[in-house]
Amino acid sequence: MKDLIKYIAQALVDHPEQVEVSEVVGEQTSVIELRVAKEDLGKVIGKQGKTAKAMRTILSAASTKVRKRTVLEIIE
C-alpha cells in the first residue's frame, strides 16, 4: 500500500525526491502518512481535494483486495 501511494504521489509532484511515505500498521486499519514538499502540497490535494480523494479511492480499492482498511493522511 505504501508503495502505491508513493508511486502515485511521485508521479504527481514536481519534487519526487521529497516525497515521504510512512505506514502505521494496525490489525484492521493502517494509516499511511504522506509528506511532500511544501510547493507540491496543492498538487497532491488538488482542486477541492479532488486528487486527494482520488488517491483515497484508489487506496481503499486496493485495500479491499487484501481485506483491510487503509487511511491516507496528508501531512502538512
Binding site: 502515485i8 508521479a11 504527481l12 488538488g46 482520488a54 488517491m55 484508489i58 480499492a61
Partner: peptide
C-alpha cells in the same frame, strides 16, 4: 475507482 485512476 475508474474515475479516480483516470484523474490521477
Amino acid at each position: 475507482n475508474l474515475d479516480a485512476i483516470q484523474h490521477i
